[in-house]
């Protein structure tokens, strides 16, 4: 599934009731190359909250479903958004910006990054910081 497809999906809990909010973004752990948290927001002016990937039951179709008894925490501000981020090869040359990311909805592993300069395998990820996403030279 693509990050842009997940964005905007409602976040549901199994014991009924309305959705907790809609997904704003996914937090990625660059070291393990997988999605670590799901961030969502209730309404347009609600505070952004996040849940750990372990509490997510399924992603899609049409919704992100959580396991029962999940208490979302207020999202920390240290989140680095992957979409739109500058891509730097570790030789110090830029490689466009991230357009979209494909990931496995069961294992949370990233599969591929789609940048403005072409596709990159997720295995080349080195780090994600406040300035850029760093990838290994191919």
């Amino acid at each position: 599934m693509l990050f842009t497809e997940v964005r905007g999906l409602p976040v549901l809990v199994p014991d009924g009731g309305g959705p907790l909010g809609t997904v704003t973004s996914l937090t990625v752990d660059a070291l393990s190359g997988s999605v670590s948290h799901v961030r969502f927001r209730a309404g347009r002016f609600g505070r952004e909250k996040e849940v750990s990937w372990d509490t997510v039951e399924t992603v899609g179709p049409g919704a992100v479903r959580l396991r029962s008894a999940t208490a979302p925490e207020p999202a920390p501000s240290s989140h680095h958004e992957l979409l739109g981020r500058r891509v730097l090869v570790d030789t110090g040359t830029e490689h466009g910006t991230v357009l979209d990311v494909a990931f496995d909805t069961r294992t949370a592993r990233l599969l591929a990054l789609f940048t403005t300069r072409g596709e990159l395998p997720a295995g080349r990820l080195l780090g994600l910081g406040d300035y850029a996403l760093v990838v290994r030279e191919g």
């Binding site: 730097l88 080195l126 780090g127």
Partner: peptide, 10 residues
């Protein structure tokens, strides 16, 4: 020119 760590921080 920016000085960037391999972790992506300037």
């Amino acid at each position: 020119r920016p000085v960037v760590t391999l972790g992506g921080d300037a």
